[in-house]
Nucleic acid binder design. Structure first.
Lengths: 233, 233
DNA sequence: AGTATAATCTGACGTCATGTCAGAAAAAGA
DNA sequence: TCTTTTTCTGACATGACGTCAGATTATACT
């Protein structure tokens, strides 16, 4: 998310009128915001540079001062998400203790995040196959997740929490499921409810990874609604 | 592949030489074959009408006599797959008896089919977000599967084979996983091996749908490759 | 503030793939 | 061989892209 600092703040007069930001930075943000707004209501295929820049309030050609092309813009948007996602996923990946509650927490966070940013995720996924470079970034993004999940499964296998099996294919499968599901449910309006999505993800992960643990204490696994999940504001 | 016959010989006596097919039909097939060949080695984004028609051996504009545009062509290709897929999936959907072997059979068939036709699947999935109509067809295709799986789960729930839970979200999740996975592993060259993919799909479906049944008889589920699985081909 | 300089913007241009159409060429039928 | 129908083709118009030189505006310094 954080690019470079506003850096040398040597404003002598009061650049505050124009906000502390450099012009270029303001324009860049205007473009990004226009894109976010547009993509929250339209599919990526309808986004053109002309459209976008008229929303952003400058001329079409100015776009190319900030991004190589639309796919480059999507890449930047993805990078923004990436951090948040890895951060919100931390509990299951790094916590210790009963893995199922950690899984639930991680997935709740993931679902909530994607509930808000799902349109970006969808836009990136839609755009990726059109551009070799973006596709590479997207696959790398997914692959990072595969690596992380594989590691975590192997750790839990080493400590006996998960029975031994080839971890990577399972990690890939679960991740692809998550991605497709999150995009499917939250990638366009109107969005699905969070709860059923959260529940089904947790159900499949736990029955796949922790079958013995999951057998108990969850009837149909309906009433497991946890803390009110602060409305997130 | 095939240029045009030495032709020049307009023998209307035996149209068999030019095959029994009408010219238009031969051209249509030439286009489709050129597309299949191209897509088995290149991503959809590199396919242009000009490229395609030069492979097919006729002029660019002739393309539009047969298809509205490239997305329409992709739709036709998808329709071709659709039948095969539903057919090969029959065992679990329609058979009766122990559900796990049926699942295994269905998934083996699915994996094998997609091993061969994966590039089409990928091309369609890649192309879908670019065209409203194709996207609709693709989503409908997935949705038909969701319906079928939901029904089957509910049947098995009614007969006590599967514990009660909201079937549709689970069906959706499992289907999206399958689709992503099949495209991921078989959508481009070099392709993954069939066995691990088949195994992981079966593992996740069974542990999700038939957790009690699956607990037994499968150690880590590695050594389940009893039969030599005739080398494919 | 006033001005020099650097940063940013803009319109015009060339490119490429698309989809259409009228006329040419070839196939089908007799 | 001739006629009719089908199929193909080149040329055109369109729309989005990405670039660039010159104009315009912001910024820094006195």
């Amino acid at each position: 998310m954080s690019e470079k600092e506003p850096s040398r703040v040597r404003r002598r007069n009061d650049p505050l009128d124009h906000s502390v930001l450099r012009k270029s930075e303001r324009t860049r943000l205007a473009i990004i915001n226009a894109a976010l707004e547009f993509l929250s209501t339209h599919p990526f295929r309808d986004l053109t540079v002309a459209q976008l820049m008229s929303l952003a309030g400058t001329s079409r050609s100015a776009f190319y001062q900030y991004f190589e092309d639309l796919h480059d813009l999507m890449e930047k948007l993805l990078r923004g998400l990436e951090e948040d996602i890895f951060q919100v996923a931390a509990p299951w990946f790094q916590g210790d203790g009963d893995p199922i509650p950690m899984l639930e927490e991680t997935m709740a966070g993931l679902v909530q995040l994607c509930y808000r940013q799902g349109s970006i995720l969808r836009a990136v996924a839609d755009a990726a196959p059109q551009d070799e470079r973006l596709e590479h970034v997207w696959l790398e993004f997914l692959n990072d997740f595969d690596d992380a999940v594989t590691d975590r499964i192997e750790q839990h296998q080493a400590s006996g929490l998960i029975e031994p099996f080839d971890a990577r294919p399972v990690a890939i499968a679960l991740n692809r499921m998550d991605a497709s599901l999150l995009i499917h449910h939250f990638g366009r309006r109107p969005r699905s409810q969070q709860q059923p999505v959260r529940e089904v993800i947790v159900r499949i992960w736990t029955s796949t990874l922790y079958p013995e643990l999951s057998r108990e204490g969850s009837v149909p696994a309906q009433s497991r609604s946890r803390r009110k999940a602060k409305p997130g504001k």
